[in-house]
Design a protein around this nucleic acid. Structure first.
Lengths: 354, 354
DNA sequence: ACCCGCGACGACAACGTTGTCAAGTCGTTG
DNA sequence: CAACGACTTGACAACGTTGTCGTCGCGGGT
């Protein structure tokens, strides 16, 4: 019993013994270092293959201080937007020989903290991409010097951020509605928890102001406790004395809920534009017009930036704006009913135009 | 310069020094072992918090031989079904204090092998859940004694598998169509690469046989090189001498493609049932009837089984069948046009029943 | 007074790998 | 022939943690 191969996983030592070299040489071969005689290299590779040796990641990262994987923290994988985003990152990471550790924050900032620390301090990941929940992340400071961090979807000061121009894209969409004569445009799902939504609301307000339309809080539906009854809310808005004639859904959930609701009450011929594309938006009658925020573009930009940070010393963090597209599919082009608001609009805010 | 706290991450040694105990005692506290005096424990915890100590996962798993995370290999995260499945697993894993390493196979068995080995041998994960691609996975054998493995979505001999009853569920759906008088039922996306699809085709054939209907290969559309032009294929089927009067989509991609195609040519009033629920299936007109295969149920069952395998010695692997539901939403209940096939059907395969 | 047992704790090796540094082997040059 | 450099290789420590085993102090039974 010379304690050989059977029943224990082969380690670098076994390979070394089998190839008749030292463990260091095996290490060199595994890490594709130059200084190894081709013949020796061949012998080692041979040994690796017959033994089925796979280097131990734990030992490796213990020595090097950095794990060969990147950490991701997003709201939830059940959200198709984030799932696609992670998918894009994973694809690129694989090409780089990096694994992906994924965790969800569930929009809870305590959980976000826990997960981020586990990744950065515990697993010592080579980098982190996350969709920030809390406003501040001071606990990441000690790691910032060694671990590159990129924020996605929601912007945060101090981090490289990959986001879309929420305010501008929203403005463009709402502008489209205004140009078709809509004066009563409902905004769905104001939600104080998300700065993203905040900016979209700002874009909405920008257009109203520039068009000289009054801002009516009654037209803005708020999510309470993360949920909203789209059906009754839609009915309320359509039943106002001066009813809403167009809808803007500021997120995918609202888009789905609203679309479903409008179809259910057979009012699908109401003008509507949604922030975020979704499956079947173009199959419905009429097609739901959307602001397309491509998760693959965002994911790619984020991982690309992360990889860049791994190399060069990081200059000041900045915001990376990924372009969006306004996909008009019918629902956004439905003009306001001529009689919607029969009295002429009197602009009282002239001077405010740029 | 006594080389203290600043600029280096605190290790167990720093905590020990700060609390005036040995590193072993800190280890005991971190691992919640009994034999520690409450007072000492408090002192250590205090030190841990002030220093912001987080144990190093790499060193931990190097010693213990097992990483505190579970590995997942699925087709692609961009597929909402798998994304939801991973989400369910991740949620449960978190509760167990386990992280999630996720990789995609992209349906490539070489890549599957690479990823599985990286997880099992490289990262030494505490367990693996994967959607098998290859028929055999002999390279996993050396690890089976120490690492629990659970297959999902597609069944494989030798593994605990969490799947749905593809054949039975399909049969139920096709039966529904047959009962409404359909005799020309198209089957979409025969794909040799997936045993899942194979079994669904079997279910389809079961019903035809039991109903005494002839099997017409012209009604079965095959995916070539992973893609299919649903529009022209649908038109071909509807243009046959004896046209298809109902469609069965054996996977979500086919369902989406087919639905889009039928809408585009304004034939959405064709009977149709899809395997796999998808967003908006109930918003379309008519609603698309679906066999609902709940990814959360599957994910939960898989992780639950995995956790069980971590404990007890594993008895023989078995198949765990997760129930499906036939969601009738309109499209599946559209009867066959009375004149579709005007000649009476003559059963010549009587004896085969039961 | 003695011994034994038990609870609390620490010294030290070990996990598998890589970085550091030194040593060996050549062929080439002065 | 000695000296040198280029190339190839190996011995050994170290990464941060946990397992093993030993030590210490104290209380109770004889």
């Amino acid at each position: 019993m010379t304690g050989h191969s059977l029943n224990r996983r082969p380690g670098i030592k076994d390979v070394a013994a089998s190839a008749g070299v030292s463990i260091k040489t095996v290490s060199r071969v595994v890490n594709a270092e130059e200084a190894v005689h081709p013949e020796t290299r061949a012998r080692v590779i041979q040994a690796i293959q017959t033994l089925g040796y796979v280097p131990n990641t734990a030992a490796r990262s213990l020595k090097s201080g950095t794990n060969g994987s990147i950490g991701i923290v997003i709201d939830s994988l059940a959200d198709p937007f984030f799932a696609a985003l992670v998918s894009a990152i994973e694809t690129r990471a694989l090409a780089e020989g990096l694994s992906v550790l994924v965790a969800s924050s569930n929009l809870d900032s305590d959980r976000e903290r826990e997960q981020l620390l586990s990744l950065v301090a515990g697993h010592q990941v080579a980098g982190v991409i996350f969709a920030p929940v809390a406003d501040e992340h001071p606990y990441l400071d000690p790691f910032r010097t060694t671990t590159p961090v990129v924020a996605v979807d929601r912007s945060r000061a101090g981090f490289d951020c990959v986001v879309v121009d929420d305010r501008g894209a929203t403005a463009l969409a709402v502008q489209q509605l205004v140009e078709l004569g809509h004066e009563r445009i409902a905004f769905f799902d104001r939600d104080e928890r998300f700065s993203t939504i905040h900016r979209r609301l700002d874009g909405y307000l920008d257009v109203l102001r520039d068009a000289g339309l009054p801002y009516d809080p009654e037209l803005v539906s708020s999510t309470v406790d993360g949920s909203l009854d789209y059906l009754s809310e839609a009915q309320r808005l359509l039943g106002l004395e001066r009813p809403a004639t167009a809808f803007f859904a500021s997120n995918a959930k609202a888009a789905i809920g609203l679309t479903t609701a409008l179809h259910r009450i057979h009012r699908q011929n109401t003008a509507m534009i949604a922030f975020g594309d979704f499956a079947f938006a173009d199959v419905l009658r009429p097609g739901v017009s959307c602001i397309d925020q491509d998760p693959f573009l965002i994911g790619n930009a984020a991982i690309e930036r992360l990889l860049a940070l791994r190399e060069g010393p990081k200059n000041d963090p900045r915001e990376w704006i990924v372009p969006t597209a306004l996909l008009l599919r019918g629902s956004g082009e439905i003009p306001a009913p001529p009689d919607a608001t029969s009295h002429a609009h009197i602009s009282t805010t002239e001077g405010q135009l740029a």
